[in-house]
């Protein structure tokens, strides 16, 4: 029910401003994915691509794809004994894709554009020797994009992503990245 409610909000925001597209942009980004409250993985690099469609100067919707490579965790066995050794527990890889919504200065106007960000999508965590975890994930964050006169924007964003799991737990990450977008600048 919550999923449908959030998707409905995104559709509603889009529908109310349909026909008023002011900007389309595509871009790529790189940064870090930092698992939180998770002893089984450490932070690792993140890469992704995204596209946005801006309606008026205040609302935009988009799609994204992100891929992360988590750091490994070390564990010592038989500590203090002749058989003592340290084993590596692989952190694995995370992939997510979905839809997002932006609220703020998001139309690709030259200058600094600050915005509030929300997302819904699919998240998958894969590791050697362990079953994959695939869940719906939600994100919330803040960002700023500095759009240069020649339609190139440099963007920085911080996102807190949560993927609730079946056992009433969740997988959580703080994600930050810096990227570049090209704005087609319709109607600007």
């Amino acid at each position: 029910m919550r999923i449908y409610a959030l998707a409905a909000l995104i559709v509603l925001l889009t529908a109310t401003t349909a026909g008023a597209v002011v900007d389309i942009s595509i871009g790529a980004f790189g940064g870090m994915d930092i698992p939180t409250a998770n002893d089984l993985a450490t932070s690792g690099p993140l890469y992704g691509i995204q596209g946005k469609v801006g309606f008026t100067q205040f609302i935009a919707v988009g799609v994204f794809y992100r891929a992360s490579s988590y750091g490994d965790v070390e564990e010592t066995f038989f500590e203090g004994e002749p058989e003592e050794h340290t084993a590596t527990i692989p952190g694995g890889d995370g992939t997510s894709f979905g839809a997002d919504v932006y609220l703020g200065r998001i139309s690709g106007m030259p200058g600094a554009n600050f915005y509030l960000y929300g997302s819904i999508g699919s998240y998958k965590w894969t590791r050697d020797n362990l079953a994959d975890v695939s869940e719906l994930a939600y994100g919330m964050g803040l960002g700023v994009e500095v759009v240069l006169p020649f339609k190139l924007g440099i963007e920085g964003r911080g996102v807190f992503q949560v993927a609730p799991t079946e056992n009433d737990g969740s997988l959580k990450s703080f994600i930050w990245f810096i990227g570049a977008n090209y704005h087609f600048g319709l109607g600007n």
């Binding site: 409250a37 965790v73 737990g169």
Partner: peptide, 9 residues
């Protein structure tokens, strides 16, 4: 409701 959970070993 699910924010205050974590994974441990």
């Amino acid at each position: 409701g699910c924010l205050t959970t974590g994974q441990i070993k």
